[in-house]
Simulated scan of single mutants.
Amino acid sequence: MPKAAESLADTPVCLELSKVLADSYNLYLKTHGYHWNVRGPQFNSLHNMFMTQYTEMWTALDEIAERIRALGELAPMSGSAFGNLSSIKEGDATKSATDMVKELVKGHKTLIETLKNAIKVADDASDDPTVDLLTVRLGSHEKHLWMLSATLED
């Protein structure tokens, strides 16, 4: 029988996957919100880039949660659970386009660190399917980070 979400600390791989899910969900929400609220001369390009990124992240959320379930745990699903697990802060719609990009860069860097830690824990547990899933996610977030960072260059 699956354990309650509060018991995830008993299973290190699922705890790390839950942190990845929470950071991913918060970064998804921030990216989607910035897609709605970006303005200025770069509106069209940023609006489209944010949509590409949040769409990719949305699909990944399901894959991460399903991996937690495959390991016999319940996936966190509430705002409070995500808030307790995530290292990524909420977005601010009043920010300028440049500051939105900077916030997303910071969010991807944070999630990349969360992913690297989760990969280590999964690797130490010889959980190859989780390592594979997280490695793909790492590559995606490194690409998103590169694209966002490139918009900040002169």
Rank of each mutant, 00 (worst) to 15 (best):
Y25K: 02
E66Q: 13
N37Q: 09
L138M: 12
L138P: 03
A70E: 15
I64W: 01
D132Y: 07
T151F: 10
C14T: 10
T151M: 09
E90L: 06
S24G: 14
L74K: 07
R137S: 11
K116Q: 13
G139I: 04
S86T: 15
F82V: 06
D99T: 05
Y25M: 07
V136L: 08
S45T: 14
S45M: 11
G83Q: 08
S140V: 11
K89D: 11
L145G: 02
L46Y: 05
I112D: 03
R69V: 15
H108V: 01
L46Q: 12
T130V: 15
L21T: 06
S149K: 10
F43A: 09
S140M: 10
W36Y: 12
E73F: 07
K109H: 09
N117L: 12
E6I: 11
M147K: 07
H141E: 11
L148M: 12
M49V: 04
G139N: 14
T98F: 05
G83A: 13
G79L: 12
D99Y: 04
F82C: 05
T52C: 03
F50C: 09
V101I: 14
K30T: 07
T130I: 08
L17R: 01
V13D: 00
D99H: 13
P12K: 10
G107S: 00
Q42N: 14
V101K: 06
